[in-house]
């Protein structure tokens, strides 16, 4: 077994609502091996997004450690964590979250501005990423000129352009029609299979979960079952 790329130990997270403390995650421990395609499922409010945000380094744990590629990200200072995200995490959001005033090309280029790549190198990387999502002909289009599915593909190009260690996707097909959703899932599957990307996918959709190599169920902040999907 290769060493896990994500290693989560005894993670707790709660939110404060007024004077009340709402526990969301309670003592979560699990590993994700490199090259995994994991689907995170569970009822609404069970803490899926919270867990994903913690792994992606945009939220802070109350207790426990999260090691990714050997780095304990719970110990990183804010600016180091930001830089770590830029290099190691690719985000795919439910509502694509493209910057409306930037073209597809510029949106994909954005994470590369956080690297030391030259303009020419950036150009090459962006072109390659847009090729992977099959949108090379749309690179000068603004998000408003693209369909939902196309926007999500641009977002995926943006997520993979820095060649991050993990891809996190929070209901990436939640806002798409069936056909576009299938395309997106196929693309993610291909990224996992052909490029060996580690993907963590939060979803409500059993069809989406079926594409994953394994499924993790979260129930009221506790890990419930760990099915190994047949692949």
């Amino acid at each position: 077994m290769p060493p896990p790329i994500v290693s989560i130990e005894h993670v707790c997270k709660s939110y404060r609502r007024g004077s009340q403390i709402v526990p969301v995650l309670e003592d979560i421990t699990f590993d994700i091996p490199e090259g995994e395609f994991l689907a995170l499922m569970g009822p609404s409010g069970s803490g899926k997004s919270t867990l994903l945000n913690l792994i992606a380094g945009i939220d802070a744990v109350d207790a426990g450690t999260i090691r990714i590629g050997g780095v304990d990200i719970t110990q990183l200072a804010e600016t180091d964590l930001a830089q770590w995200r830029a290099l190691h995490v690719g985000f795919i959001f439910q509502f694509y979250n493209l910057i409306p005033v930037l073209t597809a090309f510029e949106n994909v280029e954005l994470p590369l501005l956080l690297t030391s790549l030259s303009k020419k190198e950036r150009q090459e990387h962006v072109s390659l990423a847009l090729e992977v999502v099959n949108l090379s002909d749309r690179m000068d289009h603004y998000p408003s000129q693209l369909s939902g599915g196309q926007q999500q593909r641009v977002a995926i190009a943006r997520a993979v352009v820095t060649d991050p260690s993990i891809l996190v996707a929070d209901e990436p097909t939640g806002d798409l029609d069936r056909k576009s959703a299938e395309d997106i899932l196929e693309l993610m599957e291909r990224l996992n299979r052909e490029s060996g990307k580690t993907i963590i996918l939060v979803t409500h959709d059993p069809r989406a979960a079926k594409r994953a190599r394994s499924v993790l169920h979260l129930e009221k902040g506790v890990l419930n079952a760990h099915h190994q999907a047949a692949h």
Partner: peptide, 13 residues
């Protein structure tokens, strides 16, 4: 939302 996205991508405060 845009600000949140930029920060998530790694842009600093």
């Amino acid at each position: 939302g845009e600000i949140g996205t930029l920060r998530a991508l790694g842009f600093r405060r």
